[in-house]
């Protein structure tokens, strides 16, 4: 009797010594923990116990790919980078995707367009919140990645099973209802059509939009309802013809470009930070009356005025 008691006690003591810390955590928190690991580590956790077996399938991660090694600054060979992108694409098919950040220097004609298209198609099927594609090209380098529009991506990549969830008439991103959860979008040296930008702006939660160096941007309207849009940057879009900015909650705006466009600002009562260069900057200085509808409310103003080829005057005026 006493022996079994002792044995019981020993067993109990051992149990309390190695108490399962995770017992008190709900699955949602375990999923949050697994989402902070690489996919490989999260999947391996399925071997721990029955409870962990399928949790990895609900994880969602932020993926960052860069061809530049941060400590040394060395660049990865573009082919190796492509292989990396292809392998990760395969691995990340069945889990969530919160953020997708791809940065590489687009410096040879050997392009990575196909694999990037595949990534964008994958992102379309997830509740992506943050998208950054930074494909900085060398000056005078003519090739630029073209952000696919709906028809192209869908019909090249989608399987029939995926498509049957949608109306057969759906031809645009809007009709497909994809990218609806986007909050931040940053595209550098990516050519993107106005329809696609307008679709991003129609997403209910969009907070930040940055388009730099797009050759397909022509007539852009950043117009309410944009309840969460706080930051906007449109820079160096060489073919831009017109821009209209009218967003009640917009706080920070940057417009840069040599091309002359008509006065873009309509109703922006919360705009306090502004950066301008090119003709719009000159207009701000020489025709202040045209800008009086909003200039009084600015607290941070950066004007990049080009006075000669090599000298650049940076004037920072602080109102308040």
């Amino acid at each position: 009797m006493s022996r079994t008691d002792d044995a019981f006690r020993v067993k109990r003591r051992r149990k309390t010594a190695a108490r399962n810390v995770f017992d008190k955590l709900p699955d949602d928190i375990l999923i949050a923990i697994l989402s902070h690991m690489s996919l490989k580590d999260a999947v391996r956790a399925s071997v721990l116990s029955h409870r962990w077996r399928n949790l990895w399938k609900f994880t969602s991660r932020a993926l960052v790919f860069s061809d530049r090694d941060t400590p040394t600054g060395a660049r990865m060979d573009i082919r190796k980078f492509q292989v990396l992108l292809a392998r990760e694409l395969e691995l990340n098919q069945s889990t969530g995707l919160d953020s997708l950040i791809i940065r590489f220097s687009n410096r040879c004609k050997y392009t990575t367009s196909d694999i990037i298209d595949d990534w964008i198609f994958l992102a379309m099927q997830k509740d992506l919140k943050n998208l950054e594609l930074d494909f900085s090209v060398r000056p005078r380098f003519r090739y630029r990645y073209k952000f696919p529009d709906a028809c192209e991506v869908v019909f090249e990549h989608a399987t029939e099973t995926w498509l049957c969830g949608f109306s057969t008439r759906a031809r645009t991103l809007k009709e497909l209802g994809v990218f609806a959860s986007l909050r931040t979008v940053k595209l550098v040296d990516v050519s993107i059509k106005d329809e696609v930008v307008h679709h991003f702006l129609s997403c209910a939660c969009i907070e930040q939009l940055c388009i730099r160096g797009s050759r397909s941007t022509k007539n852009l309207r950043v117009v309410d309802p944009l309840p969460y849009l706080k930051q906007l940057e449109i820079s160096n879009c060489r073919k831009i013809r017109s821009l209209v900015i009218s967003a009640k909650n917009l706080v920070s705006c940057t417009y840069q470009g040599r091309r002359k466009i008509s006065f873009p600002f309509k109703e922006n009562p919360n705009l306090t930070e502004l950066t301008l260069d090119g003709p719009l900057c000159e207009s701000f200085i020489y025709e202040p009356k045209n800008h009086s509808s909003y200039s009084f409310q600015l607290t941070d103003l950066v004007l990049k005025l080009q006075i000669s080829v090599c000298a650049r005057l940076l004037i920072i005026i602080s109102f308040v």
Binding site: V21, F22, S49
Partner: peptide, 10 residues
């Protein structure tokens, strides 16, 4: 399993 006291129920 040891560190977090997870019981292997497989």
């Amino acid at each position: 399993r040891r560190k977090f006291g997870i019981e292997n129920d497989y």
